[in-house]
Simulated assay, not measured.
Amino acid sequence: MLDEGLDLLVGLLGGEPVTHHGVHYRAEGVALRPPPVQSPRVPVWVGGSTQAKAVLRRAARADGIVPYKLTDTDGWSDFTPDEVAGLVAALPARRADGQPFDVAVGGRRRRPDERAERAYLAQLAQAGATWWLEYVPAGDPAAMRAAVLRGPLR
């Protein structure tokens, strides 16, 4: 269902009418309106555990991946630069629209030592990561705004 749904979603985000007769879904001339501003469509990233090999197969049919290492949520472990390089090697270099394939890693709070954090992020970028996703926990609105206003590490 996920594979077929991904194909249908990618088609719908193209802005043109879609006809799809699949095993799980059916669409007759359906179009999303208004069409997306991005061309050829809004990028689709597939998320999931790299332990589940299906996430790599699905991501290769999309525009990017938001990988996680664990199938459970009891622990967290950052990706190493070597792990990112291995992941990048297993995925296409280019999307269907010719743009680079996105690899978005992260999902945790920023470390207090910004110098160490910048060095880590530079290593991930060198290994092929294209995005870093920083976790901003829900809570005090002022603290959340401060985290957003702080902006990304550069």
Rank of each mutant, 00 (worst) to 15 (best):
residue 34 P to K: 11
residue 26 R to N: 03
residue 18 V to G: 05
residue 12 L to T: 03
residue 31 A to G: 08
residue 27 A to S: 08
residue 15 G to Y: 06
residue 22 G to K: 08
residue 51 Q to V: 13
residue 22 G to F: 09
residue 25 Y to F: 15
residue 53 K to V: 12
residue 46 V to Y: 00
residue 18 V to F: 01
residue 23 V to H: 08
residue 28 E to A: 15
residue 31 A to H: 10
residue 40 P to E: 01
residue 49 S to T: 09
residue 28 E to R: 13
residue 7 D to M: 10
residue 9 L to R: 00
residue 32 L to Q: 08
residue 15 G to R: 06
residue 46 V to K: 04
residue 38 Q to W: 00
residue 29 G to T: 14
residue 6 L to W: 00
residue 47 G to R: 04
residue 10 V to M: 14
residue 34 P to V: 12
residue 37 V to N: 06
residue 10 V to K: 15
residue 23 V to N: 07
residue 31 A to K: 08
residue 50 T to C: 05
residue 22 G to C: 09
residue 53 K to H: 10
residue 29 G to P: 07
residue 28 E to V: 13
residue 12 L to E: 00
residue 19 T to I: 06
residue 35 P to S: 15
residue 30 V to W: 01
residue 37 V to L: 14
residue 50 T to A: 05
residue 7 D to H: 10
residue 23 V to L: 11
residue 44 V to Y: 00
residue 11 G to K: 15
residue 32 L to S: 08
residue 26 R to F: 02
residue 23 V to S: 10
residue 51 Q to F: 03
residue 20 H to L: 13
residue 36 P to N: 04
residue 26 R to T: 09
residue 21 H to N: 12
residue 54 A to R: 11
residue 29 G to V: 13
residue 22 G to V: 11
residue 22 G to A: 10
residue 53 K to S: 12
residue 51 Q to D: 06
residue 8 L to A: 08
residue 38 Q to T: 12
residue 55 V to G: 02
residue 54 A to Q: 09
residue 6 L to A: 08
residue 48 G to V: 06
residue 36 P to K: 07
residue 53 K to A: 15
residue 47 G to F: 01
residue 13 L to K: 01
residue 7 D to T: 13
residue 25 Y to W: 09
residue 11 G to E: 12
residue 49 S to F: 05
residue 46 V to H: 04
residue 28 E to D: 15
residue 33 R to S: 13
residue 18 V to C: 04
residue 55 V to P: 05
residue 29 G to S: 11
residue 50 T to D: 08
residue 24 H to C: 12
residue 31 A to V: 14
residue 30 V to K: 03
residue 19 T to Y: 06
residue 16 E to T: 15
residue 41 R to M: 07
residue 19 T to E: 07
residue 7 D to W: 00
residue 46 V to F: 03
residue 32 L to M: 07
residue 45 W to P: 00
residue 33 R to E: 14
residue 50 T to W: 01
residue 37 V to Q: 11
residue 10 V to W: 00
residue 52 A to F: 02
residue 30 V to N: 04
residue 38 Q to K: 04
residue 13 L to M: 09
residue 33 R to N: 14
residue 31 A to I: 09
